[in-house]
Amino acid sequence: MSTSAMQQVHHVVICEGCDAVYQKAVLGRGQVARCPRCGTELERYTGRAQQRILPMVLAGLLMFAVANLFPIVAISLGGQYSEVTLAGAVQALSQEGMAEVALLVLATTLLFPLMQLLILLYLLVPLPRQRRPLGFAWLVRILQSLLPWGMVEVFLLGVLVAIIKLTSSAEVIIGPALGAFVALTVLLTVILSFQPRNFWHMAFAESTE
Rank of each mutant, 00 (worst) to 15 (best):
G179H: 09
L184M: 02
L156S: 06
P196N: 05
L58N: 15
H10R: 13
E16K: 08
G47M: 08
T189V: 03
R34G: 01
L147R: 15
I53L: 10
S94W: 05
A20M: 11
M56R: 13
L106S: 04
G150M: 03
R34I: 07
Y22I: 07
V12C: 11
A5V: 12
M115I: 01
L106P: 01
Q7E: 11
P113F: 10
Q95Y: 01
A25Q: 15
F204D: 08
M56S: 15
L146C: 05
A203G: 08
M63T: 08
F194K: 10
A162D: 04
Y81G: 02
M202R: 13
M151G: 02
H201Y: 12
L42H: 02
K24R: 15
F112M: 10
L192S: 06
M202E: 05
S94I: 03
L156H: 12
P128Y: 05
E206W: 14
P113S: 10
R29V: 03
L42V: 07
E100W: 08
M151E: 14
L62T: 05
A74K: 13
R129C: 04
V57F: 13
L27R: 12
Q116L: 07
L54C: 04
L147A: 15
E100V: 04
R48G: 01
W149D: 09
I75W: 00
V84T: 11
V125K: 11
H10N: 03
A87R: 09
E171W: 09
Q144S: 15
I163H: 06
P71Y: 00
R44E: 12
M151Q: 15
Q50Y: 06
L77P: 00
L184P: 09
V57R: 10
S145W: 09
V152F: 04
E43V: 06
G175S: 00
G97W: 10
V9Q: 08
S145L: 07
E206A: 15
S168I: 11
M56K: 14
Q8I: 03
L127H: 02
L192H: 06
L127D: 02
G150I: 06
R37L: 02
P148K: 06
L27E: 00
I174F: 06
Q8W: 08
L93V: 04
L146F: 07
V159Y: 02
M151T: 03
F70W: 03
G135V: 11
Q7C: 01
E209Q: 15
G60H: 12
L117V: 01
L166G: 09
V32N: 06
N68H: 14
A92W: 10
F136E: 03
L123W: 04
T208K: 00
E206I: 12
H201W: 02
V73G: 05
P126A: 12
G78E: 14
F112N: 12
T40M: 04
L117F: 11
Y81L: 13
T185Q: 09
E16N: 07
V32T: 15
C15E: 00
W138V: 12
V73S: 00
R37E: 02
A162S: 13
C15R: 01
R132N: 06
A183Q: 13
R44K: 04
E206N: 14
L166W: 05
Q91H: 03
L77W: 00
E43I: 07
V182R: 13
N198I: 03
